[in-house]
Design a protein around this nucleic acid. Structure first.
Lengths: 140, 140
DNA sequence: TTGCGTGCAAAGGTTTTGCATGGCA
DNA sequence: TGCCATGCAAAACCTTTGCACGCAA
């Protein structure tokens, strides 16, 4: 029998990474930025460790991973558990990077359409709509 | 003065790549798949050449480049100016990993709603709907 | 002939993996 | 003590660039 353990030891590195992600208050960072941040504080954490923690946190739903086109590397962002993200979609601006939470009844229409017409059960927690937000569209 | 020449020589490789993209009838391929395709036909084309042609074709608007999250490499798709210029949904099954691309008028509704109600211009090339496909839902 | 096209090789960058060591419980 | 976590080094990948040679016009 394969038992999947929680296996979440409390380590200095794990705690520091989570704390740092929280401290960003919604801002997004790349793995490299995280590594450099800890180098600056002389509290070095190996990049392999950073990758592995981010992967774990993303799987737990504590952070979200983005792959923005302009950047070559992925961006990660902490998700505040205080706000319940279950009932809405996320809009990610590809230009300024801001994440917009969309609470709207239209959500049900999308969900219903995909399920009834395409037999597809959408996962709202993971799905992100990419595009251009109001502010950035105005500048263009 | 910098003069940008058209500089479009007609070559075997360029023609074969364009023909192949057209033959896919809307399907996606990666650079690797293209290279392997020509290896199979014993009409080998270097991957550098493939990259450069795809870049050129994308700049000309003849093909579309997708950078999908989970995939490591970019996907390219021929754009049929007659029928296929509208774009489509991308549904990614989180269980079996299959990518479903489907044309549906509902796309316009989503686009319109996000723009009119939320001032958000969605980028359908980048947006992927995550969830569970029909087959995998049946197994669960 | 001119100069772009081609493709090998190598570089550049991100992410993953192997493995010996370190550290939590 | 038993595992998991860590992090160095190396591998695995994708994409771009340098350069000599090929080929279209």
């Amino acid at each position: 029998m394969v038992r999947k353990r929680p296996a979440n030891y409390h380590t200095r590195q794990g705690q520091r990474i989570l704390d740092y992600m929280k401290s960003l208050e919604g801002g997004h960072v790349t793995v490299n930025q995280i590594v450099r941040h800890f180098e600056d504080t002389e509290d070095v954490i190996g990049q392999t460790t950073v990758y592995r923690h981010l992967e774990k946190l993303a799987a737990q739903g504590k952070i979200r991973k983005y792959v923005l086109h302009e950047d070559k590397s992925a961006c990660y962002q902490y998700i505040d558990n205080g706000t319940n993200c279950r009932g809405h979609f996320h809009l990610k601006c590809e230009i300024c990077g801001s994440l917009i939470h969309m609470d709207c009844d239209f959500l049900d229409e999308i969900e219903g359409h995909l399920l009834s017409k395409h037999n597809f059960q959408i996962n709202m927690l993971k799905t992100v709509f990419y595009g251009t937000c109001k502010k950035c569209a105005a500048v263009l």
